[in-house]
């Protein structure tokens, strides 16, 4: 779907992106992660040519993007930025309709699409469609920004710190909505963030950058348990336990034990894909704890063993 080869960009004497290459399959979510100033936003903007690279190529569906008109290219790629950038003199509905209009879609189709998207993003159109951006809260604005990026149903969505400007509560809830949004399931997504938790929550794969250079490209679990270098290890050190809880699933934790005890499938409401973090939340919630076949203590013990297994497995 997206193939990036040897992309480099300098601003003056400062090398912002150095020889970055990666490939992204259709439907995959790649998170560009790294500290401020690591070049992740510049890298993202080179995908839709808001920044032109000094060298290297970007191919989308096998076509070199530098051989296309930038406007045409961008209309086929959803784009969301941290400051949202809604057009302040357009209503919510008009903002959502910008790209479909540029593409010359039929007005009726645009209206239907706008209504559907706003409804799905919890912005009832009858209430919000005619409002102007400044009348909305930050979270609502970002939802409109997301709706705008999705309006023309582009196969690729680029997001530049989309939740960065929101307060933690709003941020968590929008992120959940984002993750559960049907629209996004089939999309190829590239998301820039400096928030490690966010990256682990949303990414299929993470590209960790520092000073414009790729430090490691892999699944969250690979970055966590098999760091390629000291930078990667240090980058996750502070939130290591939280990330491990989010990364390991009940399937990981209980595999061998389940086999030896032959206790059957993992009890409802859990599946093998439930993370330890989520299972713990359910268990410690007094109402839901009744029907489970293991206790918090059992889970934590199994988690500890699983961690040891992972460490040893990678050491070998």
């Amino acid at each position: 779907m997206i193939r990036v080869s040897h992309l480099s960009k300098r601003f003056g004497a400062h090398a912002v992106v150095q020889d970055v290459s990666f490939e992204l399959a259709a439907g995959e979510t790649l998170v560009l992660l790294g500290p401020s100033g690591c070049g992740k936003t510049t890298l993202l903007k080179m995908l839709n040519r808001l920044v032109e690279p000094d060298s290297g190529t970007v191919e989308i569906n096998g076509l070199n993007v530098f051989e296309q008109r930038p406007e045409t290219l961008r209309r086929g790629i959803g784009y969301v930025i941290q400051q949202v950038g809604l057009l302040p003199h357009y209503t919510v509905a008009e903002n959502v309709a910008v790209v479909p209009r540029l593409l010359g879609h039929a007005p009726a189709a645009i209206a239907a699409r706008t209504t559907a998207l706003l409804t799905r993003l919890h912005l009832p159109p009858e209430r919000y469609a005619a409002q102007l951006p400044h009348q909305l809260s930050g979270g609502q604005q970002q939802r409109v920004g997301l709706a705008r990026a999705l309006a023309a149903d582009p196969p690729i969505i680029l997001l530049d710190e989309p939740f960065g400007a929101l307060d933690p509560l709003t941020r968590a809830s929008i992120r959940r909505e984002f993750r559960e949004l049907e629209e996004l399931r089939s999309k190829t997504v590239v998301l820039v963030t400096h928030d490690v938790t966010e990256a682990f929550e949303l990414a299929d794969r993470i590209l960790l950058l520092d000073a414009g250079q790729v430090q490691q490209l892999g699944t969250p679990r690979e970055l966590l348990f098999q760091p390629a270098n000291d930078f990667v290890r240090r980058f996750f050190a502070a939130e290591r336990l939280a990330l491990q809880l989010r990364t390991l699933t009940l399937g990981d934790v209980f595999t061998e034990e389940a086999a030896t005890r032959s206790a059957g499938p993992i009890p409802l409401p859990f599946t093998t894909a439930t993370t330890v973090h989520d299972a713990l939340e359910t268990l410690t919630d007094s109402d839901a704890g009744a029907s489970t076949s293991f206790s918090v203590a059992e889970l934590m013990a199994a988690f500890g063993q699983a961690l040891q297994r992972e460490e040893e497995a990678w050491k070998r």
Partner: peptide, 18 residues
């Protein structure tokens, strides 16, 4: 005009004239 608005507009695929 807020730079973010212009950047978003360009990112959506508006030409310079638009």
């Amino acid at each position: 005009v807020a730079p973010a608005v212009v950047e978003a507009a360009r990112g959506l695929g508006l030409t310079d004239g638009q």
